[in-house]
Structure formats: structure tokens, C-alpha cells
């Protein structure tokens, strides 16, 4: 069990009762390993947000259990939840949800202070984190003075400040143009990989499929098929492993969109291996 960060065990969520009852999530199971990035996609109303809220202990499942590092968070009382939310989870939202009266720096440091860090230390750590995310020159800007991409980077800093185990993001790119959205997602992937944090992303955005290790398709509250994605090292396209052209080389597996790409790769594997590394 230690090799999974998050374990979702036959979870069901029903809203309302009797005649107005809606089953938003039906008997869903899922596990996420450390450093793994899972993307959940699906049509509107399929239960993505509901599932994500349950993963983040914002919502209790009607049935089933959710384990986080061995703790059954779905069974915790309301009293224990703030601490878990604060220290185990990092949240990233579609509309950023920064506090409008606080500066970028304060938006991050307030969360560190909530977790018990002293003001000066919290500010120092926040400033460093924001600088790492390229916002050194924006520390004292109010959210209204920041661009969408900058706001989302502040939100990422806020999500990371308490060193969470799991980062949960709902439609993080929906309010960003596609180039910035993709950049932000790459940044998130880089952080997840470097710091070995797990990430669960809910999104409609097809373009961010390539940063995920796994893509799940949710429909009517259930996973339809679990597709594991890989990137064609030659053309950069995101491909489904099961359907892709495959090549094993020096103990590594490579997947390609077409036979042509595989042949090209086989001809000069070294060159593509390098660019592949560099791209993440």
C-alpha cells in the first residue's frame, strides 16, 4: 500500500434523496502513485468535479472509502479535515480563486500561516516559491493586476506551499489561452516529477492529455476505459499505449503514432532520447 498515494475504493456519491436523487459518481475505483499525474476527462455533468471534491476531502462519499497515505480520509470527522486539507492537498481551480484583497505574496503566505508557519518565515518561503515560478517581479501585485497565467502560477505556488502529497486541479486551463494553459501544465508536470508529488487533474482540455501519465474517461459517473498515454518521441504527439506502435530499447518502452515515426526513432534513437528528456 505504501506505493500508492491515493486509493479510491468503490466510491459512490449520490446527491439528494428519493425522487430527486442523482448518482453523480458510481462505484469508482482508482489509485495514484507518488509522482504520478492522472487526468480525468469526460462530458459535462459526468461527475468529475464531484469525484475531485471527494478526493480533496471537501465532500464525503455516500459509499466506499478514500485512502490517502494509508489514512481513510473519507471517514474522518469534520474536525480533522482542515488539517488534512491544509497539509496533504494542494488545490488549483479553474477561476484561480485568489483572495482579491491580498497581494500575490500574501495569497501564498496566508496558507502557510494557516498551517502554523510564522509570518516572516511564511513570507520568505512564499517569495522563494513564487520566484521559482517566475513571479519574482510580481510579489506585491494584487490579483487584478496579474494576467491569467500569472494568477494560475500564484495558485500553483499556493497549492505547493505546504508541501502537499496530492495536488488536485479542476479545469486549471479553462480560463487560459491554449499556449499559456499548456505552459502552466508543463510547469505542473515538472514540479510533480521533480518533487515526486501526485497530481489529479480534471479537464475538458484535450491538449493537456500529453502531460498526463494516465488519462481516465468518466461518463455517467463511471470510468469507461482507462487509457494510458505516452508521447511519441519523434513527433511529440500524445498516443494511447494500447493502440500505438511500440518499441523496446535498452529496457525502455517507446510508443509512436505511426510506423514512420518508429522507424525514424530506430534510426537515431540517441537524438530523440535527449529531446524527449529535455521536453519534460
Amino acid at each position: 500500500m505504501t506505493d500508492t498515494t491515493l486509493n479510491v475504493d468503490h466510491v459512490t456519491k449520490r446527491y439528494g434523496s428519493s425522487s430527486t436523487e442523482v448518482t453523480a459518481v458510481k462505484d469508482v475505483s482508482l489509485s495514484v502513485k507518488p509522482g504520478e499525474i492522472v487526468l480525468i476527462m469526460g462530458p459535462s455533468g459526468s461527475g468529475k468535479t464531484t469525484l475531485l471534491s471527494m478526493l480533496g476531502a471537501l465532500l464525503k462519499p455516500t459509499e466506499g472509502e478514500i485512502h490517502l497515505n494509508g489514512t481513510i480520509i473519507s471517514a474522518l470527522s469534520e474536525k480533522h479535515l482542515p488539517d488534512i486539507r491544509l497539509k496533504q492537498f494542494g488545490f488549483i481551480f479553474q477561476d484561480f480563486n485568489l483572495l482579491s484583497a491580498l497581494t500575490a505574496l500574501e495569497n501564498v503566505s496566508i496558507v502557510a500561516e494557516l498551517a502554523g508557519m510564522k509570518g516572516v518565515a511564511a513570507r520568505k518561503k512564499s517569495a522563494e516559491l513564487l520566484a521559482d515560478l517566475g513571479l519574482a517581479g510580481r510579489l506585491n501585485f494584487l490579483p487584478e493586476k496579474l494576467s491569467g497565467g500569472e494568477k494560475q502560477r500564484v495558485a500553483i505556488a499556493r497549492a505547493l506551499i505546504n508541501n502537499p502529497t496530492l495536488i488536485l486541479a479542476d479545469e486549471p486551463t479553462a480560463n487560459l489561452d491554449s499556449k499559456i494553459g499548456h505552459e502552466i501544465m508543463r510547469l505542473l508536470r515538472q514540479i510533480a516529477k521533480e518533487q515526486n508529488r501526485s497530481v489529479v487533474i480534471v479537464s475538458h482540455d484535450q491538449r493537456i492529455k500529453d502531460i498526463a501519465d494516465h488519462v481516465l474517461w468518466l461518463e455517467d459517473g463511471q470510468f469507461k476505459e482507462i487509457v494510458s498515454m505516452a508521447i511519441d518521441p519523434v513527433c511529440g504527439m500524445s498516443v494511447e499505449r494500447e493502440k500505438a506502435f511500440h518499441l523496446s530499447l535498452n529496457g525502455m518502452d517507446y510508443y509512436f503514432c505511426a510506423k514512420g515515426c518508429r522507424d525514424e526513432f530506430a534510426a537515431d534513437a540517441e537524438k530523440y532520447q535527449q529531446t524527449n528528456e529535455a521536453s519534460f
Binding site: G56, P82, I84, R85, F91, L99, L114, R158
Partner: peptide, 9 residues
């Protein structure tokens, strides 16, 4: 609500 979700009591 955001503060609560982030873990404020």
C-alpha cells in the same frame, strides 16, 4: 469557501 477548502477553520 476557498479559504475553507484550503484548510482554514
Amino acid at each position: 469557501g476557498v479559504l475553507k477548502a484550503l484548510g482554514a477553520r
